[in-house]
């Protein structure tokens, strides 16, 4: 259930054009990307099409993946998120300027390992959250609901929602440190 470091090895193989490695990554992540897009309000047809585009982008941009800066799951999430804004909202999504040194051609092994350990701890912490808090975070990410819309739907005052999300994040940070 956690992001195993093997996916990073898969990415290195995909970079070399290994279609078998790609098929394995596809089997794991494509259904999860599709679930994300459906939860964000895409029809099943649109979600299927966007999922294929996201996975094709993973292949095409494999050389941009930097395991010392993000896990494979995080990287795929950002591609899917951008595709969602593009396809569902039809808006541009300005990205931050790349860091001056750009993607490192030889990512630092120790950094990559530390990041993958942190990522696993984050997933574990997320799984341990009380259901209410986890649910709120999920809806903030996948539900395409703004904070005020979440409040309207649950009938809770906005301030409560905000402080609950903040509390959940603080707990996450606490468990990470």
């Amino acid at each position: 259930m956690t992001d195993s470091p093997d996916w990073t090895m898969h990415m290195a193989r995909i970079r070399e054009g290994d279609t078998a490695a790609f098929a394995q990554v596809f089997r794991h992540f494509a259904p999860r990307v599709k679930a994300f897009l459906v939860k964000s309000g895409a029809s099943s047809t649109l979600a299927e099409e966007c999922t294929q585009e996201v996975m094709a982008t993973l292949w095409h941009k494999a050389h941009m993946f930097d395991p010392s800066r993000a896990s494979v799951a995080t990287w795929i999430f950002t591609i899917a998120r951008n595709r969602k804004i593009d396809a569902l909202r039809k808006q541009r999504r300005p990205d931050p300027e790349d860091l001056p040194w750009g993607p490192d051609p030889e990512p630092d092994q120790a950094d990559a390992l530390a990041l993958s350990q942190e990522t696993r701890r984050l997933s574990a912490a997320l799984a341990q959250l009380p259901e209410k808090q986890r649910d709120l975070i999920e809806r903030a990410y996948f539900g395409d609901l703004s904070h005020s819309e979440i409040a309207a739907e649950t009938g809770l005052p906005l301030g409560t929602i905000k402080s609950r999300i903040r509390l959940a994040l603080e707990r996450l940070r606490h468990q990470m440190s």
């Binding site: 494509a30 999922t51 799951a73 999430f77």
Partner: peptide, 25 residues
């Protein structure tokens, strides 16, 4: 972003189209 990545792990996963991988290739 890392929280987003962690949330990709879901319980109920939808079916992909039967030829999804092929179409992606």
């Amino acid at each position: 972003d890392a929280i987003g990545g962690a949330l990709l792990e879901a319980e109920d996963l939808p079916e992909l189209a039967a030829d999804s991988l092929e179409l992606t290739m």
